[in-house]
Amino acid sequence: MRAAYASSLQPDTPLSALTVGDLPFSVPEGWVPIDVRASSLNQHDIWSLRGVGLPADRLPMILGCDAAGVTPDGAPVLVYPVVEDKADPRGYSLFSERYPGTLAERIAVPRENLLPIPDGVSFAEAACLPTAWLTAYHMLVTRGRAAEAGAVLVQGAGGGVATAAIALAVALGKRVYATSREQWKRDRVAELGAIPAEPGARLPERVEVVIESVGEPTFEHSMKCAAPGARIVVCGATGGHLARVDLRRVFAMQLEILGSSMGTPAELAELLQMCATAQIHPVIDSRYPFDSVADAFARLSSGDVFGKVVIEH
């Protein structure tokens, strides 16, 4: 079976650890084999090649968390990426951490991890959802309680989670502000129906929800933009994890700083249905055939992406 996998761990040159070749395929008892039609890349894949969360004794490890495909009877399905894992301190792991990932011709999946893909959602669009879009949905709807908000700020437009958060918040009818250092990304923000802003810029209003995945460079700005009682929802720290927090502002404004990670199968089902009924199309930066998966990784690593990088089979 053709697969893209980590053959070594290279902290400084992660792409040199990527190999595309044949690996054996097996299906654990009670699991279902899925023929993959599309998958998408995440920064998690780059970190795996660096050896973060992936020890050497699990190599070779097929990469990838996200996939859409068909069951043996031809039903189109989306793969929920979280697997129960009693050996992990978290109680779960993602595909490509302990169990083979999605960047392959086929993947074995627990039956309960399969969700039907509704009409109107393509394999490529569905493959964008399980990690980045589900994370954004959970941050907005569940942790951020966006239903109670009028305005949302998304820091660091361009990445998968931030771009998903912009599109979803606009679809939910919110006034959405989104920051980026690069003008072309701010132009794309405007195309999605949001209001672009430079990092650190003063907004016309304070917001009730902040989607924060950048961390250290933007966190002070996130707090200054927060309305009384606002929720600052954090899912990552791509720019640095040692952010300064003015506790006086936290208690005076009664702010909530909330950690967030992934989402539930029920939320993924809700997100799928929302995409179908509201005709929300996940933002795809670029598409690559499986034979060009190395080019897809190079694209993701470039930092010039806006949306998801998709692999199609």
Rank of each mutant, 00 (worst) to 15 (best):
L49W: 05
C65Y: 10
A67I: 07
A296Y: 08
S261N: 12
K308R: 14
A162W: 04
G51D: 13
A169C: 03
Y5I: 07
D45A: 06
F297N: 04
L49G: 09
S26M: 07
T102E: 00
S260C: 14
A252T: 09
E270N: 08
I62R: 10
E220K: 14
G239V: 13
V36P: 00
V305S: 13
C275Y: 05
A149Y: 06
F251R: 06
A190P: 01
G303W: 14
A6P: 05
S286L: 12
A294P: 00
L15K: 13
L140F: 01
G64S: 04
P72F: 08
L300Y: 04
A164D: 13
P100S: 04
V310I: 09
A194L: 07
A151D: 03
A75K: 15
V27S: 08
A149K: 12
H281Y: 10
A108E: 07
R111W: 00
A296N: 06
D246I: 04
A104H: 04
L242Q: 15
I117D: 03
I280T: 09
L114D: 01
A294Y: 02
A243H: 02
A190E: 05
M262K: 02
G229F: 11
S8P: 01
L247N: 13
A17P: 13
F290T: 07
V152A: 06
L115F: 02
V79W: 00
A162P: 02
G156T: 07
D291N: 11
V310K: 01
E84V: 11
L242P: 00
E270I: 02
H281M: 09
P118G: 12
E220P: 01
V207T: 14
A108S: 15
P11I: 05
I117C: 03
V161Q: 04
A67E: 05
P24S: 15
R248E: 10
A226D: 01
A178Q: 08
D85N: 12
Y92W: 15
R37A: 07
P196T: 05
R181C: 04
R175P: 11
S16R: 14
D295V: 08
T19Y: 01
V20N: 11
R181Y: 02
K86F: 02
P24K: 03
L203Q: 05
R98S: 12
G51F: 13
V176Y: 10
A38N: 09
P228L: 08
L300I: 12
R244E: 12
V214F: 08
I62S: 05
N113P: 05
R58K: 13
G239T: 13
V52D: 13
V32G: 01
G236F: 10
C225I: 06
P110A: 12
V209R: 10
F123L: 06
S301Q: 15
G259M: 10
R244C: 00
A108F: 06
A108T: 09
I211N: 01
E84R: 14
L9I: 12
L78G: 01
K86D: 14
T238V: 15
G193Y: 09
V20P: 13
S222E: 09
A67M: 09
I211M: 13
